[in-house]
Nucleic acid binder design. Sequence first.
RNA 1: GCGGGUGUAGCUCAGUUGGUUAGAGCGCCAGUUUGUGGCACUGGAGGUCGCCGGUUCGAAACCGGUCACUCGCCCCA
Length: 423
Amino acid sequence: MSRLQPARGTSDLLPEAMAAHRRVIDTARDAASLYGFQEMATPIFEFAEVFSRPLGDSSDVVTKETYNFTDRGGETLTLRPENTAGVVRAMISNGLTQSLPLKFFYAGPMFRYERPQKGRMRQFHQIGIEYLGPRDGLADAEIIGCGARVLDGLGVLDRCTLHLNSLGDTESRQAYRTALLAFLDAHAGDLSKDSRTRLTTNPLRILDSKDQGDRAILAAAPRLDGFLNDMSKAHFETVTAALDKAGIAWRLDPLLVRGLDYYCHTAFEFITDALGAQGTVLGGGRYDGLSEMLGGPPVAGVGWAAGVERLAMLAGAQAPAGPAVAVMPMDDDAGVAAHALAEMVRNAGIAVDVPTGGAIGKRLKKADRAGVRLAAILGSDEIANATVQLRELAAGTQKEVAQADLVSDLVDLLVKPVGGAGA
RNA sequence: GCGGGUGUAGCUCAGUUGGUUAGAGCGCCAGUUUGUGGCACUGGAGGUCGCCGGUUCGAAACCGGUCACUCGCCCCA
């Protein structure tokens, strides 16, 4: 290992990884645009309150996972750990509450100070959508459908299960919280250490504890769906009815709770077992109270975010695409002419590389391996005759063509399927 | 923050009970082929054995510490 490494929990995206990321992001953007979501971006850092207020001071994200710093002007800033708060802040800042409903898609890096693990980095990337305005459960179903479409587009939907739950509105959640606390207090001595501290900080979180002992206790705990009031029940029924009608399979998961305080009603996660401990690949829910928490008018919202790294891992490797054509000078003397010829080809919109240095044979071999299909070889004879040796690398055949005809010949050959001649 | 595993060439890994100049395959560079790759053969470059300290006549190997990576806990995408 070299001494010079990237900071812990960060990594370089070399072309191969970058290609996989791009595929995820492009697929998501395309799917989102089918639903009318438009891409936007917010800053990578915000005033600390943008995250600390809505996320809740007791949430793990804020207490131990944010990157905070003070800038030269004395402002306390936070590298965004997620993007929903930033998008809602942008809605308020730009006065967009006059233009509801809003449908946004975003993609970009997020930052959480955590111990790195498979599928979890300190700088990671998320794609997500936010649907601002509608209170109706149909909006929930629409964004879930959009999420399913993203996963399907990547070919990973069949390896994911949609877990769904309702947290209810504030009233329902309060009632449940009281009942749950009463139950858990009676078993406090048997709970895991982590869960005991959560009794005071965030009791709902105990529900998705992975501790065996906790799970045994929770089996007898009161369930959230028993405490939903009529309005909350109706909302959830709209969501599930719409999902069923759309043919989207889901599974009720009464233990599914979202970590962030602003969620209400619908909570969902697409979970896979193919990624080790980090099973959640796309998750989200409804956050009707968020805008007010940030000091804006009451605006309802639903959305989800998905981890690009996790999706890229699930979807598999992606070969980065390079130029299919190379112009190769025979030697240094042909370099200038080769560059001029390459520019001519580029003017026609065809991507061209000009490998120089080293033996021509090595360059042909390397080009072939890199996926180049056609090489236009240029030496002193060709320069004198205004021609070029046009070689099909896979087949090893070549012919002399006039430089003036090069572009049209390239177009003809590029249309042919790879290896179509034989092999 | 807590626990397990792993650190030897660009990559994947050998390296015997501690022994002298640390190896292989792949990759890379060059040659056999003076204007043409893939096969083959030949040669070459490339290593503070993660780092620091200790034990020893002698450490890549044993001990301690440390750093990094990795898997898991917590939490989440």
